[in-house]
Design a binder for these strands. Structure first.
Length: 285
DNA sequence: CTGTAATCCTGCGAGC
DNA sequence: TGCTCGCAGGATTACA
């Protein structure tokens, strides 16, 4: 569910609520997450103060006093929020970190990880080197905002894959998922089945700009809430009201009124305007 | 190198 | 009501 804009929103929400506060307790549920939680991690975290809250791709990084990182991936249905301790825990809450009171006599609060489908995960790295090694091993690509046209050109030059598959590949660009891949391709007026190697320099430039533009706008709207995404303070996103193709199958294109098409690509449903995003030469619709 | 499908899960809406 | 089916913001793996 959550892609870069949603994860960025969670991080921005959590930062002022967590930085400077200590994790007092750690509770771990019985249900297995995507990656198994190691019992020693409780001890690694307990009593440490949060130094920083950051994002890398779709990963949430909580840096703690003395070096370790608590790292959370939201998968499809993950929610990471700070809630009042008195607020009942909802079902599917798998990790709960009790927070030091914000002020003497202040109300108790908790950092909670809830994930209905359990495709998400929480893990702990001993220090920044271990964290970097993890991303290095996974081949996680660069953040999309500082990318040069040169980088895109190099990535696309020999690519026989279609654009949709390329955008979803976290090794090419970190953070883009199904919604923002479709919306970016519409913005760039590029059909999702076009091959990377077939793009003209102008088209490469359009794609690079479109990804940045769409993600930036989505962050401004606090991401997209379709089913169950919420930010770190529990607020929903608003970008779903600005979707131009995603989830709009057979509805009119906002640019040309053609009916939005949908097909299965790279295992995901892809939405596009058959007119504004012309299919590759020799292909149908 | 490609693409495709199955897998990990639960919940929801559509259709009967 | 209740059932089945298909689908869902992700990522990995196996196989053609």
């Amino acid at each position: 569910m959550p892609e870069l804009p949603e994860v960025e929103t969670v991080v921005r929400d959590l930062r002022p609520l967590l930085v400077g506060r200590r994790l007092i307790t750690v509770e771990v549920g019985r249900e297995k997450l995507r990656s198994p939680w190691k019992p020693v991690w409780q001890e690694t975290l307990r009593g440490r103060e949060v130094r920083a809250v950051d994002r890398r791709g779709k990963w949430i990084l909580i840096e703690l006093d003395g070096g370790p990182f608590l790292v959370v991936h939201l998968g499809m249905t993950g929610q990471l929020t700070v809630a009042a301790g008195a607020e009942p825990r909802r079902d599917h809450t798998h990790l709960v970190f009790g927070l030091e009171r914000g002020s003497p006599g202040g109300d108790p609060a908790e950092l909670r990880f809830r994930d209905v489908r359990r495709f998400g995960s929480g893990r702990v790295f001993a220090d920044r080197a271990a964290l970097d090694a993890f991303f290095e091993t996974s081949g996680l690509g660069p953040e999309p905002f500082a990318l040069t046209p040169r980088y895109w050109r190099d990535q696309l030059a020999g690519a026989r894959r279609c654009l949709k598959a390329i955008l979803l590949d976290q090794q090419v660009v970190a953070g883009v998922g199904n919604i923002y891949a479709d919306e970016s391709l519409f913005e760039a007026k590029l059909h999702p089945t076009r091959l990377g190697k077939d793009l003209t320099p102008a088209e490469v430039g359009r794609l690079a700009a479109a990804v940045k533009k769409v993600l930036t706008r989505a962050i401004e709207r606090r991401g997209s809430t379709i089913r169950n995404y919420i930010g770190g303070s529990g607020l929903e996103g608003g970008y779903q009201r600005e979707f131009r193709v995603y989830g709009r199958f057979e509805q009119p294109c906002p640019r040309c009124q053609s009916l939005i098409g949908r097909s299965r690509l790279a295992g995901r449903s892809s939405h596009f305007c058959p007119t504004c995003q012309p299919p590759p030469d020799g292909a149908a619709g």
